[in-house]
Simulated scan of single mutants.
Amino acid sequence: MTDRKSELAANLARVEERIAEACAAAGRARDEVTLIVVTKTYPASDVRFLHELGVRHVAENRDQDAAPKAAACADLDLSWHFVGQLQTNKVRSVVGYADVVQSVDRLKLVSALSAAAVKADRELGCLIQVALDAEAGGRGERGGVSPDGIEELAAAVDAAPGLRLGGLMTVAPLVGSYAGRQRAAFERLMDLSTALRATRPTANMVSAGMSGDLEEAVAAGATHVRVGTAVLGVRPKLG
């Protein structure tokens, strides 16, 4: 086993142990939580190692990095998640490889994703990114729609050919009333998910939690956690 693969295996084992312990503490079964490894800034070779180590869900946040990496790993049975703020001019490319776009936060993006999915003859999973720091009707600093905008977007995704509403996603806010209160933020997201599932029971995916706060996300009820640094290491600074 190469040094890098050994390093990834050890990191992955530690993250797996954290998730298992968090599930046990919350009285949840381990298989209720899916690990998504965020591979941004790391090469396709790392994605291949992760696949060999059993990872099946990977995430990227920049199309210019993700598209070539996904192409280089097209022979692997992976689910690719796009988690970054998405400009409409990148949609066609992203729809070519992504199975799920977790950062749907405006009507214009829904329309663009639908048109590209239909053209590519694909069904694309969509999560509505919720910005818990956003004012009513606005968007958050890191993307996302305010909680009162969820229903409008959900209805748009429901009506859009080629798209499937999967659920909700959030990033723990850095500002506002939830800053530094990850558990409370994730519990708020779960309340919003419960409301959404009342009319759309299949939209049951709740993506929350990263390397530093996955335990709080699991405790709150997240179904998916997005972990990068804890698996791959501290990211190199981008120029």
Rank of each mutant, 00 (worst) to 15 (best):
L153M: 06
R122N: 04
L168C: 05
A116H: 00
G143D: 06
S114R: 00
A26G: 11
L214P: 06
A159T: 04
C126A: 07
R56E: 07
Q182M: 04
G228F: 08
V33C: 06
G233T: 08
S79L: 14
V15A: 01
V157T: 04
R56D: 05
A198W: 01
A71L: 12
G233A: 09
R139F: 08
G149Y: 00
L168A: 01
L109P: 09
V83F: 03
Q64N: 08
F82D: 06
L12H: 10
S111L: 13
Y42E: 11
L153N: 02
A116S: 14
L232S: 08
L50Y: 07
A184V: 06
D63L: 13
Y97T: 04
K90E: 13
S207H: 13
A67G: 08
D99W: 07
I128E: 01
Q182P: 12
S207C: 14
A67Y: 05
V171K: 11
A116V: 04
D46F: 13
L12I: 04
G176F: 02
S93P: 07
A219F: 04
A179W: 06
L168V: 05
T223Q: 08
L189E: 02
F186G: 09
E123H: 15
V83G: 06
L127R: 09
E32C: 11
S6I: 14
Q129I: 03
F49V: 12
G209K: 01
L192K: 04
V83P: 00
E17A: 15
T41W: 02
D46G: 08
L53T: 05
G143N: 11
A72W: 12
E16D: 13
G166D: 14
T88Y: 01
R92W: 01
S207A: 13
V110Q: 09
A66L: 11
K119S: 13
G143Q: 08
R18Y: 01
A120T: 07
L238Y: 09
L214E: 03
G138N: 02
R92A: 15
V15E: 06
D77V: 14
L189W: 06
K40H: 02
Y42F: 15
P68M: 11
V101F: 04
L124G: 04
N204Y: 07
M210P: 02
P201N: 05
R183M: 10
S211E: 11
R183S: 14
V206F: 10
A115Y: 06
A10Q: 14
S111W: 02
F82W: 12
E60V: 06
F49I: 11
A20S: 12
R4I: 12
K40L: 11
T88L: 08
V38C: 15
D31K: 12
V37T: 14
C23A: 15
L232W: 09
S177V: 13
M210K: 12
A134W: 11
I128G: 03
R62W: 09
K119I: 05
L163D: 00
G180S: 08
V38K: 06
E17D: 14
S111I: 07
A198K: 12
A195R: 14
R18D: 02
V37L: 11
